[in-house]
Simulated scan of single mutants.
Amino acid sequence: MRLTDFWTRMEQVFGPGYAASIATDQVLSQLNGRTVGQAIADGEETVVVWRAVCAAYPDRVPARLR
C-alpha cells in the first residue's frame, strides 16, 4: 500500500483532523506501543500499519477498506 493510499483511507474513515490526531496521539498495541506516525517513521510497511488501525478500530473501518 502506498503512503498516499494509507492517508486517503485514514481520512475517509476518521476525517482529516481526527486522522491526524489518531496518527500522532493514539498508541496502538498492534504496533508494539507506537503511534501510527512513529511506526511509519520507523519504516514499518504501511499495510502493516493499516492492519493495526483496522484491528484497533474494527467498528469504524468499513469492510470495503480493510
Rank of each mutant, 00 (worst) to 15 (best):
V53C: 07
L31N: 01
G17Q: 09
I40E: 02
V48C: 06
S21W: 13
V27Y: 07
L65G: 11
Q30R: 11
M1T: 10
W50C: 05
V53D: 00
A52T: 10
V36Y: 00
V36N: 01
S29I: 07
W50R: 04
R2Q: 13
M1D: 06
A52S: 15
D42V: 01
G15K: 07
L28V: 06
W50Q: 07
C54W: 06
I40C: 04
A52H: 09
W7D: 05
Q30H: 11
E11C: 08
R9E: 00
P62L: 03
W7R: 06
A55Q: 13
T24F: 00
R9I: 02
D42A: 15
D5N: 09
F14Q: 02
T4E: 15
G15A: 03
E44M: 14
S21A: 12
F6Y: 15
A39V: 04
A19G: 02
P16W: 00
L65S: 11
S21C: 08
N32Q: 14
V13I: 15
L31F: 03
G33N: 03
N32W: 03
I22L: 11
R34A: 03
D59I: 07
R51Y: 11
Q38N: 11
R60V: 07
R66H: 13
R66Q: 15
A41E: 14
T35L: 02
G33C: 04
E45L: 14
D25C: 08
V48M: 09
S21P: 00
T4Y: 10
Q26K: 12
G15H: 08
S29Y: 04
G17S: 08
A23E: 00
Q26M: 07
L28A: 04
N32C: 05
Y57L: 09
R2A: 12
S21R: 14
A20C: 03
D25Q: 13
G33S: 01
E44L: 13
D42N: 11
G15M: 05
G43H: 10
L3N: 06
I22Q: 00
A56E: 15
A19K: 01
S21T: 12
T46W: 09
A56R: 14
D25E: 15
W7V: 05
L31K: 04
G17W: 03
